[in-house]
Simulated scan of single mutants.
Amino acid sequence: MGMQVNTNIAANNAYRNLSTTQNALGKSMEKLSSGLRINRASDDAAGMAISEGLKSQVNGYTVAARNAQDGISVVQTAEGALTQVHSMLQRMRDLAVQGSSDSNNSDSRDAIKKETDQLTDELTRMSEATKFNGKSLLNGTESALKFQVGADGTANDQITVNLANANVKAIANALNGGDLSTTGTKFAIADVTLVAGAASFTTTKGGVATTVTTADLGVAGTFTSVEDYATALGKDAAFSANFTVSVEKNANGAGTGIVVTAKDGGTLTNGTNGTPGTGLAGGASGATVTGGLDFSTSTLAQASLNKIDEQIKTVSEARADLGAVQNRLESAVNNLNVGKENLTAAASRITDVDMASEMVSFTRSNILSQAGTAMLAQANQANQGVLKLLG
């Protein structure tokens, strides 16, 4: 091989290899310092796309778990208040049982009425005071609350907490015999097995009439008791958003009809089932009745006892619903935590660097870099021999 001055092939070769080594050394240092195998899309384009999708899910699961925990807090707040409501209703029931005995004189019955009035007033206060983050839970303004417990935007990523049966204000209104008593419309039910189709109710307030039609509650023969029909009405979203319903019972405790009350305080002027003239009796608008407890006689005290029992049942159903949904939310939290753990592990396998393996690469590149630098220096000295020829 001849001796050239203008072109140093050995130096160019050494420089090219040194540049490649330095580039690999720089990437190894970046990976080791960041702990990530993928620091830019060019490191692994497909892996980067997958990892970003997994990151979205992991972050979504984290926030969803917090949402579910908030849902549990809401349920615990409402259920805790309902626990006290139950205690108050049980006390009122004790008083009603006491008032059902003719051993009480008028003063005793007045004392019973005064205590029950105070308790119903407290129920009203509790219904307005029980809130979570400014949202009233027990006064009927929130019939259902939705909690996002998933990372995506589908219906399966939400859990609904039903507060329709937790309307303590309606319970207080149904029991209160003072100025806070409500006026409802009574519908006698001649044969509940004949009730069919959708029910329609019209409330009028300030001269403005609002008609609400329920979903199809079933065909004739669906309901076996007045209580079943009242429960079906209460579970209908359109109905529960505008009305409350209670069951009228006879002295033997058998349901004979329903009382529907408009939440806006309006007058119920119409109410029909899907087949007018069957099932619901009492005319187009039914008979107007005023709620409240009365202990002035043994018979009225027994009727009041039945009303209290109905409200105790309502609260029991509400607490059962809340307890069930709390368990569901807790299960959702556990599932989210497991999912987050597995997705984080999957993302780690894609994006995190194997420190041991990368350290081997770094050491190799570092040695090659030092060797390449030394060889470049030797290559640059190789052409110095030409000077001897020129000397």
Rank of each mutant, 00 (worst) to 15 (best):
G2H: 15
Q4P: 11
V5H: 11
V5Q: 15
I9W: 13
I9T: 14
A11S: 10
N12A: 11
Y15A: 05
S33N: 15
S33R: 14
G35Q: 10
R40E: 14
A41P: 13
A41Y: 09
G47Q: 03
G47Y: 05
G47K: 03
M48I: 05
S51F: 09
S51P: 12
E52M: 11
G53M: 09
L54P: 06
G60P: 04
Y61S: 09
Y61D: 06
T62E: 10
A64I: 01
A65W: 00
A68D: 02
Q69F: 07
Q69V: 08
Q69H: 07
D70L: 11
T77P: 00
L82A: 01
L89G: 05
R91Y: 07
G99N: 11
D102Y: 13
S108Y: 13
K114H: 12
K114M: 12
D117G: 12
T120V: 14
E122C: 13
M126R: 06
S127P: 04
N133P: 08
G150K: 01
D152E: 13
L163P: 02
T182K: 05
F187L: 06
A190K: 12
T193L: 06
L194S: 06
L194F: 09
L194H: 03
G197L: 00
T204G: 03
G207P: 00
A209Q: 08
V219D: 15
V219Y: 14
A220D: 07
A220W: 02
T222M: 05
V226I: 07
D236N: 03
A238D: 14
V245R: 03
S246Y: 00
V247T: 02
G253P: 05
G257A: 06
I258Y: 02
T267K: 07
L268C: 06
T272S: 15
T272V: 09
G274W: 02
G277L: 03
T278R: 00
G279S: 00
L280D: 04
G286P: 07
F295C: 04
F295I: 07
L300A: 15
Q302M: 15
K307Q: 15
D309R: 09
I312H: 10
I312G: 12
V315R: 02
G323D: 09
V325Y: 06
E330A: 12
A332T: 01
A332D: 03
L336F: 01
G339N: 04
E341A: 14
N342L: 11
S348Y: 13
S348A: 15
M359Q: 02
A371S: 08
M375P: 08
M375S: 10
Q381V: 12
L390P: 05
